[in-house]
């Protein structure tokens, strides 16, 4: 699966993702946000960092770039789109995912390890997982997921 890792100004974790994908045997390359051609890839990863300095809100400027219209097109075609950390914030800000990520209630940048429960095993990321609980790192200032209808 040929995978693009997109780098915006302020993205900091593209090399981590690139190396992890290589270790997993995935053909991958880091692509600047102006140079991204969605037809060349089967999947795209938006890595973490501080795209465009987190101006306005984390991810909101990147969400307005042309590359996100191309990423949306990939999603519409059924290709794999993954957002990690700031990449996830970009997916939410672009409207590809519902909800909002609000500032943490303690007003601090939170960087620590957390435990995540596996709720679904029918996604491209969780299919084949054996564990029910995963230990994962988080690092964000705007990570308080909000949805006006949490049951939807």
């Amino acid at each position: 699966m040929r995978t693009a890792v997109i780098k915006f100004p302020g993205t900091t974790c593209e090399t981590d993702v690139y190396r992890a994908l290589l270790e997993a045997g995935v053909e991958t390359e880091v692509v600047g946000f102006r140079d991204f051609d969605p037809d060349r890839y089967d999947a795209v990863v938006l890595p973490g960092g501080f795209s465009f300095g987190d101006y306005l809100r984390a991810g909101s400027i990147a969400a307005n770039t042309e590359v996100m219209r191309r990423v949306r097109k990939m999603a519409d075609e059924g290709k794999v789109v993954v957002g990690i950390c700031n990449g996830f914030q970009i997916l939410v800000e672009s409207g590809l995912l519902e909800g909002a990520l609000l500032p943490n209630l303690n007003l601090r940048f939170v960087s620590r390890w957390v435990y995540l429960k596996v709720a679904r095993r029918d996604t491209v990321l969780t299919r084949g997982l054996e564990k029910d609980v995963l230990r994962m790192p988080i690092a964000h200032a705007e990570g308080r997921y909000y949805h006006e209808d949490p049951d939807s």
């Binding site: 306005l56 409207g95 909002a100 609000l102 909000y146 006006e148």
Partner: peptide, 10 residues
């Protein structure tokens, strides 16, 4: 159009 705000939260 520029999503200066997220209508779900703001």
């Amino acid at each position: 159009e520029g999503r200066f705000y997220n209508p779900m939260a703001h």
